[in-house]
Amino acid sequence: MWNLERYKENIALYLESGETISYQQIAQSQKEIGSVLRGRTVAVLVCCNTLGCILCYLSLMRKDIVPLLLPANLEEQEVLRITQAYRAKYLCCCRGYLSQNWNPLIAIEDYNIYEIPNWKKTEMSKDLALLLTTSGSTGDSRCVRLSKTNIKSNAVSICQYLKLTQNERAITSLPFHYTYGLSVIHSHLLCGASLLLTDKNILQKEFWQFAESKGATSFAGVPFNYEMMNRFGLLEKLPKSIKILTQAGGRLEPELQEKIAQLAIQRKILFYIMYGQTEATARISYLPPSLALEKAGCVGKAIPGGKIWISEDDEVCYQGNNVCLGYAKSYRDLKKEDENNGVLYTGDIGYLEDGLL
């Protein structure tokens, strides 16, 4: 999916330790990790924004093993329950997370990969590539089923409308398991750009020190991020290297959108308001930066390759190659094929004005 060796000399990851990881080094790690992994199966990945996690994820994808991504703050018993529900063969987590007395199959930086005892093989669709929990669905194990086509088409669209190049440096300001945060990783690796890998949050000074020292060129945030940045005066203190701000994951209050848009104009920053769902592999629409001030409260037009329309009941509908295959609640659903045929009925109410949502 990602031709890592094409950008082999490029720096893929900047670490807080000062170390850098090239695309070639990631490709080599993929081969080493992949050499011990066997079978077409599911692997539960308990996610952190760390080197071990991203190497596990990319290695699983390369081996055609389906990662099921979970947050690191999920209790161990719940992780094990989901592991069993999906008949996962592997469990990947930060060293020290498990209380189980299992020997790791392989250790990767700060992560271990464990092979689940008494694993049972299950039938899976050939198109299934990734399982992501929907917002609030972790308790019942419901996941969105995504294909490689879904992932790549969405990443290509994002690269296109954000005009991403190999010179970009995005800081990991969002959780790895979250579809928006994951889309930042996917799109930047697709175009040979760099990621500033940190598990710090925006209210920690170390986050901004890292962003400043490594020349972060973009920042991605949900409304809460921008509200906190506004409350603590961080918007005015953005690193001078920041050239792109993106916002998704909920409605940004128009007043705050206007404030950020005005700041962006002053700083010559491109500010993108966006809308999406996990079911669309992250992104459905974007508002061009030139309209951010004029169209406060609007989430823009369909991403490249997508189409938006409004149903008779005022529901927002979307069509594109990034629409998921469907849902899964257990291993029994993994054999299902594409149930959506590229069409998503979002459940959200909206309207179009001048072609904008």
Rank of each mutant, 00 (worst) to 15 (best):
P175H: 15
K259R: 13
E212W: 01
L45C: 00
L235Y: 11
Y114A: 02
W309Q: 07
T217G: 02
Q77P: 00
T138G: 09
L98D: 08
C94D: 04
Y286C: 11
A292C: 11
Y318T: 09
A27G: 06
S22R: 07
G96D: 03
D313W: 12
M1H: 12
S311E: 10
E109Y: 01
G34L: 01
S135W: 04
T50Q: 06
V144I: 09
C324D: 05
L190G: 10
T278C: 10
Y161A: 03
F210Y: 00
T134H: 02
L74M: 09
G326D: 01
P223C: 11
T83S: 13
Q204S: 14
T278W: 07
S241C: 08
L195T: 03
A292E: 10
L70T: 10
D140A: 06
T346R: 15
E253V: 12
C191F: 06
A302L: 11
A211E: 13
N10M: 03
G250E: 12
C93K: 09
Q24M: 09
A129L: 02
I26T: 09
A72Y: 05
F219Y: 15
N3H: 10
L15H: 05
N101S: 12
L51P: 00
S157K: 05
C159W: 08
K200N: 15
F176A: 05
N322H: 13
A264Q: 13
F207C: 11
F224W: 08
A107F: 00
I308H: 04
G221P: 11
A170Q: 10
T346E: 08
E294S: 15
I116N: 04
Q25N: 03
A264T: 08
A211H: 13
W102P: 11
I106W: 04
K214N: 14
L37D: 03
L356N: 12
Q262H: 14
Y331V: 03
T179P: 05
Q160W: 08
N150K: 10
G96N: 01
L58G: 02
C317A: 06
L190E: 15
G326A: 05
L291R: 12
Y331L: 01
Y327H: 15
S125N: 13
P104D: 01
S183L: 13
L164I: 14
L98F: 06
